[in-house]
Amino acid sequence: MHVLIINGSPRVKKFSNTDKILDKFCEGLSEKGNSYLRYEISDRRQWETIRQAWDESNNILIALPLYVECIPGLLLEFLETVTPHKDDADISFILQSGFAEGCQLRCGEEYLKLMSKHLGCRYKGTLVKGDNFSIRFFEDEKRDRITTPYKRMGQIYGEEASFDSEECKAFTGPEVFPAYVRVLVGLMFKTVARKSFEKISKEWGCTKPLDYRPYGT
């Protein structure tokens, strides 16, 4: 199988969590004897090339971060410019987010299914996974701990050309956290996580508190 892979993140490739996820996913895809072309919509210079590849592809995979419960404005802008297929191409998605629970991504997932019809493509499922916010802040082993599981997903997609398998569905993890986990994680949010965000903020040169109100009340 030859796949057109589009990174639909508006964030530049260097800092894109989706890009790091795709690195591992593509390793798995290649291991199963597949080939692919991979582009980023954050680089508008690639748009014409991606449109050409779109027209010629019958296996399309779009990986995207969840932006306000759905697809990012920039990806929408790009997709508004492609010529819809005529039910002659398969399309799948990797939908990732910072929020960790599966339920946070379901509304976006539903839209991707509907959007596939508008794009004239046969929907082959969405790999749904949250808890990816910190990828950009980590390197090497720490980053690999988050992204390596996507390699297995790439292998499955490489064999089945869809995300319909039970293993892909289970990859999402919990839809909501049980109450005791929420208590523990909630405590972490107020302590460790808050300190960690403040540390990153200082490293980025911020001199204001994270809850600063630049526009008054």
Binding site: I200, W204, Y212, P214
Partner: peptide, 16 residues
């Protein structure tokens, strides 16, 4: 413009 997902409004220039 579209949002570029830089996270500056959360971590570098909070609120801006």
């Amino acid at each position: 413009s579209h949002c570029i997902g830089c996270n500056y409004c959360w971590l570098k220039t909070p609120g801006e």
